[in-house]
């Protein structure tokens, strides 16, 4: 046996600390609980949606330490110490995040079910700072499906925010 035993508690809840939307939360979580289920079922943060629960639709997208990930494919216990941002954490008081405002300005949804994931994904895209054209936005938002087909307006909304931040590259032709 090693001198320092690894943390191992069979079939029992484990203590973890997550910072969720700026609030530190000390939680006790069974190993098989996904981040998505933790957020929705225990933290009452139901903005992140369970679409496919298999990493194929993007409706559960949240930011983990500022990077977008599918929360349905992360075990909460593996994220001990991480900082999580969900759709509920984007606005500052009554002031919407520019992406939220842009989605409203461009009517970038119909049923709205994919929207929290779309907006969190777009937030991740902005943090990455690599998308500067429509084609790049389309490619880098491809992890978020919209069964209503609001893609055109979603790209418009993301482009509006990129433009306001001076991150647009003019088309070559």
């Amino acid at each position: 046996m090693s001198d320092v035993a690894p943390i191992s508690i069979a079939f029992a809840a484990m203590p973890i600390t997550l910072t969720i939307n700026g609030h530190e939360r000390r939680l006790s979580v069974e190993p098989w609980v996904t981040l998505l289920d933790l957020l929705r079922e225990r933290e009452d943060l139901t903005g992140s949606k369970k679409g496919c629960d298999h990493g194929q639709c993007g409706a559960c997208t949240v930011l983990v330490d500022g990077r977008r990930m599918n929360s349905c494919l992360k075990l909460a216990v593996s994220l001990d110490g991480a900082s999580i941002t969900t759709i509920e954490g984007l606005a500052e008081g009554d002031r919407l995040d520019p992406l939220q405002q842009a989605f409203m300005d461009h009517d970038a949804f119909q049923c709205g079910y994919c929207t929290p994931g779309q907006i969190c994904s777009a937030k991740g895209l902005l943090n990455e700072g690599r998308a500067r054209t429509r084609d790049e936005v389309r490619e880098m938002m491809s992890g978020n499906l919209c069964r209503c087909g609001a893609y055109t307006n979603i790209v418009d909304a993301v482009m509006q925010v990129l433009e306001s931040r001076g991150q647009i590259k003019e088309a070559a032709e």
């Binding site: 090693s2 320092v4 690894p6 943390i7 191992s8 508690i9 069979a10 079939f11 484990m14 069974e30 190993p31 098989w32 075990l75 216990v77 593996s78 001990d80």
Partner: peptide, 16 residues
């Protein structure tokens, strides 16, 4: 259900 171990080094991971 499964047990969960967090390894803090490669040797620890291999042992577990």
């Amino acid at each position: 259900r499964f047990s969960f171990t967090r390894a803090n080094s490669v040797p620890e991971a291999v042992r577990a």
